[in-house]
Simulated scan of single mutants.
Amino acid sequence: MEGAGVDQDTNRPMRAAPAQAPASSTWASLRETIKVGIQALLIALVVRTLLFQPFNIPSGSLVPTLLIGDYLFVSKYSYGYSKYSLPLSEYIPGKLEGRVWAAEPKRGDIAVFKLPKDNATDYIKRVIGLPGDRIQMIDGVLNINGKAVKRERIADYETFDPYGQATKVPQYLETLPNGIAHRIIERDGDNGFWDRTELYTVPAGHFFMMGDNRDNSTDSRDLANVGYVPFDNFVGRAEMIFFSIDEGTPAWQIWNWPAKVRWGRLFSTIH
Rank of each mutant, 00 (worst) to 15 (best):
W252P: 07
H182C: 08
S61F: 01
Y84F: 15
T26Q: 15
I245L: 07
M209W: 12
Q253F: 09
D190W: 03
E90A: 07
F231I: 02
S85M: 01
P170H: 10
P13C: 03
R48A: 09
P170R: 03
L66P: 01
Y228P: 09
N256M: 14
I144A: 02
K83F: 02
P18V: 07
D118I: 03
F193N: 01
G108P: 03
R12D: 15
D212C: 02
S75C: 09
I92E: 14
P162M: 05
L62R: 02
W27D: 13
W252S: 13
R221T: 11
R153T: 06
W257K: 03
A40R: 05
R221G: 12
K83N: 11
P131F: 12
L130M: 13
I34A: 06
N233C: 10
Y157T: 03
R99G: 03
Q253N: 14
R126D: 15
E104Y: 00
Y123M: 11
F55V: 04
V74D: 14
T249F: 15
D122G: 02
A148E: 14
Y91R: 13
L45H: 01
R48P: 03
Y200L: 07
R262C: 09
Y71E: 13
P93H: 06
L41D: 08
G80S: 10
S75K: 09
A44P: 11
G37H: 07
I135G: 10
D109Y: 03
R99N: 12
R15D: 14
G94I: 07
A224Q: 11
G248D: 14
D161E: 09
F267Y: 11
S61W: 04
S61A: 04
L130D: 13
F73K: 03
I68R: 02
T49H: 01
T201V: 06
S24A: 12
D246P: 05
K83P: 01
F234L: 09
M14L: 14
F234K: 08
P177C: 06
R221K: 10
L42E: 15
A181I: 12
W263D: 12
V6S: 00
P105Q: 13
L176W: 06
N143Q: 14
R126V: 11
A148S: 08
D232M: 02
E158W: 01
A4H: 12
V235R: 02
I144E: 04
S29R: 12
G264N: 11
A17D: 15
A17F: 10
P170T: 07
H182M: 09
D195S: 00
F267T: 11
E152N: 02
L142G: 05
R107N: 10
N145A: 02
P170E: 13
L199K: 09
V149W: 08
L88V: 05
K76Q: 15
R151S: 08
R187E: 15
R196A: 00
Y228T: 08
Y200R: 11
A17T: 09
M14F: 12
G179P: 05
A111Y: 12
D156H: 01
V100T: 13
W255M: 14
I185K: 03
L115F: 03
G179W: 05
L199C: 07
H206R: 07
W194K: 00
V36S: 06
Q253I: 04
Q53V: 02
L30T: 09
R99S: 13
L96E: 09
S89G: 01
F193R: 00
L51H: 04
